[in-house]
Amino acid sequence: MRKVIGAAAIVMIAFLYVPIVAVIAYSFNASPVSYRWDGLTLDWYAELFQDEPLLATLRTSLLLGLVAGFIATVIGFLSAYALHRFPIRGKGVLLAAVAIPLVIPEIVIGVALLRTFSTVGMQNGLLTLVLGHIVIALPMATFVLLGAMRSLDPSVHEAAADLGAGVLGTFWRVTLPILRPALLAAFLLSFTTSFSNIVISTFTAGVGTTTLPIRIYSSVRTGLTPELNALGSLMVVLTLVVILVVGVGQMRRILAGSAP
């Protein structure tokens, strides 16, 4: 029975790679049609980097991801630090509150934001996008950082205090440097959460702030092109880079574990 399970699992994991391999393979196909293989080419990548409208949306998404990712990481860090180090009441409630965006269907959040922004008279644009993306990136950033803080040895803080470091000194010279990898992980995961988001962006993007995923979506609606496969392949590479920098152990903890 164990062998049957193993065989089935291997087949299923292989299944997860079929579409990804197809995207990468077709991105190098010299023929513009998928039923013919005319040898290898890099033309589609070259075409991609000359597609000015698409590059404009890429710039929007990069800027959005950097800003929203950075703010989510900072806010997530502050609340994780408070939850970990300060004797505040209602920690369970706070943790549950931060997890709300993970539980509420994204489309409901998107609709709710659209409605709220128009109620307060905010035009959809970069600001509304950033606000929406902070919401979806915040749980990730908070839980990554909280997990990292909890796995710290508390005695390092005591040692720092014994050696005469004040609270701020301990923070700047001990806590922050130890948490640097976790901060980077939180930022990268927040960034990719924002960068690949389409649901929130559909409701919060305005004229002139089309994001890359919205652009891809509307392009694919009119037909899949080899150029889009090239773009998809680059996004797979980005995924690999992020996972390798964050580390498998950390990814596992986030996805399968300690997050409450």
């Binding site: 997860l16 990804i20 995207v23 990719t192 690949s196 891809i216 694919v220 899949l224 998809g232």
Partner: peptide, 12 residues
């Protein structure tokens, strides 16, 4: 595959 872009995994 989980972390690969949702749209890419769809149009694939």
């Amino acid at each position: 595959p989980f972390w690969t872009d949702f749209l890419v995994r769809t149009f694939a």
